[in-house]
Structure formats: C-alpha cells, structure tokens
Design a protein around this nucleic acid. Sequence first.
DNA 1: TCCCAGTCAATATT
DNA 2: AATATTGACTGGGA
Length: 407
Amino acid sequence: MAPQQPPQPLGIQELVAVASELDTYTITKKVKEVLTDNNLGQRLFGETVLGLTQGSVSDLLSRPKPWHKLSLKGREPFVRMQLWLNDPHNVDKLRAMKKMEKKAYLKRRYGLLSTGSDSDSPSVRSECVSPALASLDLCPYSQAKKIRVVLGAEEKEELRKAYLLEPYPSQNTIEVLASQLHLKTNTVINWFHNYRSRMRREVLMEGLQDNDMDAEPHSYSPSATRSPPSEGEDRRPPSGHIHTSLPHVKQEEEGGELMKSSRVQCFSTAVQFPPLKSEHEDAMSGCREPHLEGDEQPGPGSVRRRPPEEHPVQARRRGGGVWEVPRGSASSPGLMMSVSPVPSSSAPISPNPPSTSTNHSLDPGQLQSPKVNRSSQRRNEKMANLNNIIHRLERAANREETLEWEF
DNA sequence: TCCCAGTCAATATT
DNA sequence: AATATTGACTGGGA
C-alpha cells in the first residue's frame, strides 16, 4: 500500500550510529501531541513510520527510555520519530495513508471488487474455528492463536513477593514457584525477566520525567508492591542536555544538510535533526527547563479499522513504509544530527551486572536513595496540590449534590 | 545457558 | 475504536 516505499534500505542504522543524543522524552511527547492533534492513531503511525505494532508504539510513547540507556536498536524508533517530526509533510502523509487504508477497507468490506466476501474485515480468515477446542491446530497456517496465559492477581502477587526476596531466583526457586502456582516454569521465568526489565524501566522513567509531567501515577504494577530495582544503576536524570523543546514540526530549519550517501538516500534529505546542542552550549549545559505544557489531548477517535492483515507481522515489518522524501537535490553530505563532540557515553547500555549482588532484596517499598527522594518530594507536592484542587471541587460540588461526590 | 533489550500480539482498559 | 498492559519470543552478548 505504501505509496512509494522502497524498502528503506538500512540507512537508519547508519543514522542511528551517528545521531547525536536525542531527547527521547521530548520527542515522544511531541509525537503524541501531533498524533492526537491530528487524530492519527498509534497503529497507523507505528506501522507506517516506525515499523512497529500498536502495542510497541504505545509502550514507547508512554515510557521512553533515556537515550543513553538505549541500545543501537532501541534508538532506531526515536530517530525515526525525530525524522518524522522534522518532515514538514508528516501529517499529510499519514493522513493520506489513513485515507488509503480506509478506502481499501471499504473496498473489501463492500466488495467493490476484490474477492468479495465481506466477511473478512477483522481478522477473519481464521476459519480455523475457535482457537480453543476445535482441534488444536490443523489449520495449516494459523497455529490456532496461541492462547495467552493470564496470570491471576493472586499469582502475580506471589510472584511479586518472590521477586522481592529474590529478583534472580535460582532454577530451583523457579521450579518451586511454578509448581506452587501451577504455572509452567517458562511462564515463571518469563515473568521474572519481564518484571525485572519493566521495573528497571520504571525507575528510569521516574528519573526522567519527574520534572514536568503532571502528577500522574504511572506505576508499573497496578496493585501494590512496587519495587525499585535496587540495582546499582547509574541512572541519570533525563537525557539532560538537549534543548527542551523540539522545533515545531513544520518549521524550516536553516541549513539543508542531508546525507546522500548512496544507501541512506531514503531519508528525507530535507530533514534534519533538531539543533541538538552542538552550537556552543556543548557539553553539559543540560537541565531541562521546567516547561510544562499540556500534552495529551483527548483525540476523539475516528475511522479506524483493523489492518488488512496480510501477514500479521512480516508485512509491515520490512520497512513497510517509512517515510522517505525523495528530493535529492541540494544536498550536502552532512548528516545533521551533529555528532556532537560529546557523544555522551557512547555506550548504549549501562551494564549493571545483576548477578554479582545478591543483596537486591531490600524492601523496595520504602528506602529510596536521595535521588529518588527529590522526585518523590516533588511528586508529593504535586499530589498535595491535586488534593487541594479536589478538595475545593468537592466543596464546591457539595453545595449542590452532596452525595454524588464520594470519592 | 542465562540475561537483557526489543518486540509482537492477545487482551484489557478507556 | 484507540490505547495500555503484559506473557512470550527473538537475537545478542558474555
């Protein structure tokens, strides 16, 4: 479908490699803003621009990891986002794409041609009958949707407790847990992997935002126990430097630059990364400003449908359609994302050897290192503020309907 | 073989 | 309908 999407030969990777530090938080914030403002969904954006599925996009947008904590691969989506933000026609293209999808959908739906059967809208094609009974598989292709294991609240609670005691359970512990909870050992293993990983990220997020952001409680586990991974973590606050505000999407920036290297040609040459520091503020200048503005905006939904489903994943996977702005004219080899003098710790990830320490177990619940203190203090202030507002609202409301205001 | 970062994709929530 | 959550997988590194 994608209009002109020559697979986008790798190139991003090169870009990523030379990209200077990007402020992932600001980027995602901006992206969310643009998407909601224009009524564009994550699915469309993800599949078209990032080559990722909706769930991944949601995850990425809501809890971006700081640049220096990302691996090369992890940086890719952010580079794409930045590229997209810099593309003056980003929204138009996405809209066009949306329109095309809709058209295609209608076509299928009402058989304006295609192989009739309107029955296909959402994922039909799985005449394979119910995933459940109806034969375990049989269906040549569809391996009967894999049934998703859903851990019960109780099980999760147990696992969490176990995690607090042993973030890195031994094979034996795992076995015990598995049998105790009646789960497959793999499920337990996966759970620990996922939990550790998400917990880690959660902590990163705290350090990152904390600054602006509203007092939204973004806690990983809905229910109780939250345990900040006590790992050594060298976490640093936000990706510190980097200007706080991205240039408004469509704003021309000065110089043209682009890479025209034979294979990187796929990128909109006109685009360029934001004026990342470079200039003079070089090294540390950081500190984001307290800018906070409302982000998020309820974007009333609109047309949307399920993907045509070619092949679930594969289809788009392949750079399915990453923007590319032909325009090869005026180009100057420079990449733009200035490879700032200080690639910051070029190291993608900070290895924090978990293994070594066994003393992970501490009651995460409370103890917080000074670093966390600052943020929690801030949070408390915000909380207090919110409570205050709520309180006043309540009082105001009470004047009218006393009852309904039970919180 | 173990861990992790990234993702997918089925479900849950909004 | 759109977005968020989360168990399972994949590919890399040590």
